[in-house]
Amino acid sequence: MILKSETLELREDNAVVRVRQRARALAIEIGLGLVDQTKIVTATSELARNTVDYGGGGTATLDVINEGNRRGLKLTFSDQGPGIENIDLALTDGYTTGGGLGLGLSGSRRLVNDFSIDSTPGIGTTVSITRWI
């Protein structure tokens, strides 16, 4: 169940900072500890940058969710960019098409509890992450 939801535009690198700050605020609000806050905010930064740099911009949706008796922060990053041809390859440490370190997707997955990615070439990419308390 979604307790609270907000969607932010992701068009340029300043927007990455805004999404990061909202993720931090919500992480504190639901009571995540400092290390868990830092993990989800760092994963947010990586994925928001991907949306801007590779997806040509898109949106970030931040949901406070409830499942049974646990609460979590779920972030969904969506773009209508070129999509990812080979998701397994994109999830490999060190693989990059953009000259970065190739840790964005693979590293983010390690920082959260749930991770899902859905991408169709020519249509776009959606990545969701959740950190439970």
Partner: peptide, 14 residues
């Protein structure tokens, strides 16, 4: 560097 940052960076792979 804050400890939480160090922990997170290592898990990220940096």
């Amino acid at each position: 560097m804050q400890p939480a940052v160090a922990i997170t960076m290592v898990e990220l792979g940096l």
